[in-house]
Design a protein around this nucleic acid. Structure first.
Ligand SMILES: [Mn+2]
Ligand SMILES: [Mn+2]
Ligand SMILES: [Zn+2]
Ligand SMILES: [Zn+2]
Lengths: 151, 151
DNA sequence: CTGTTAATGCTACTATGTTGCATCAATCAA
DNA sequence: TTGATTGATGCAACATAGTAGCATTAACAG
């Protein structure tokens, strides 16, 4: 009767936060649960709407700061889409870093779990790699189909 | 007495523009020449400064529109760095698409000519790929060295 | 040279993100 | 349970990147 997606185990979010010595606040908990319940990386705006839906009061700035903290703690990661806004997703297994697809028509970012990101590229001497981001741009299936129909 | 980098062949910029049926204006020519003279992808701000240096009057918006046009025509390409601003470089051989390195300390974007970008990743059915972007984040040689010295 | 119209310059506006500071509330020790 | 501590919040103000409308200018075809 309850899916993992929409009803994550109680306390998991609180524990993730507490484990880093942070305070388990409404905002942080709601953000983590929203990210757990969503299949794609979410934008600040999407998360704001999710908090609304969950009945969690949210100040714009507080949400920015909550996300900043989650990323700083390694609980979430940021993905740069094609636009100026960041997308966020929970940080999974580091051995399973994947690429993302940005649909230039609907703006969605889709996780490409099957597309791995080069982890040890040949860098010039002295360069230190922190992380890699592979973003593919184009049209998603839905948007592509729409165009087909329109011909 | 003249390097290709700093003194590109006269008329090349004009020709690039004219070939697409566009008007060879001060701004467009100066932007192309600035990009030719620079080894790394340039930001809007950097380009503005370059136009200043070249004595070419430039309105903020005009520069945005010139870049938009160059990208639309396939003369230049945009690279999303780690921040919100775009970087621009002249579009070279399409068979030689390369990755970029974003130094999180100095903000520079470096071209990694040796790191190729996956051109045919396994996409879900119906997805259409337009272009791929591989951006590596970390510290460049200069910034890494600085940190070494500071220990 | 002249007329046509693409491109410019300027103003105003939007979206995204940041900073400072007073206030509030999550946590911990008593 | 209560109170003190201080991390997190809410709000106002600011910053930066980019966009839209429109009158004016200048590139260039003829
Ligand atoms: Mn993902
Ligand atoms: Mn490059
Ligand atoms: Zn789409
Ligand atoms: Zn650097």
């Amino acid at each position: 009767m309850s899916s993992v997606l929409h009803h994550p185990p109680a306390g998991v979010a609180r524990d993730l936060i507490a484990a880093r010595g942070g305070r388990a606040t409404r905002t942080r908990i709601a953000v983590i649960e929203a990210l757990q319940a969503c299949a794609h990386p979410m934008s600040h705006d999407e998360l704001g709407a999710a908090l609304d839906a969950a009945g969690v009061a949210h100040d714009r700035v507080t949400l920015y700061r909550a996300l900043e903290w989650l990323v700083g703690q390694g609980i979430a990661t940021r993905i740069a889409g094609g636009e100026r806004a960041w997308r966020f997703e929970l940080r999974g297994d580091d051995s399973h870093r994947h690429a993302h697809f940005h649909c230039e028509r609907c703006g969605q970012i889709v996780c490409l779990e099957d597309v791995a990101v080069t982890s040890a590229p040949p860098l010039p001497a002295g360069f230190e790699l922190d992380r890699s981001e592979l973003v593919l741009h184009g049209a998603c299936a839905d948007c592509g189909r729409q165009r087909e129909g329109r011909r």
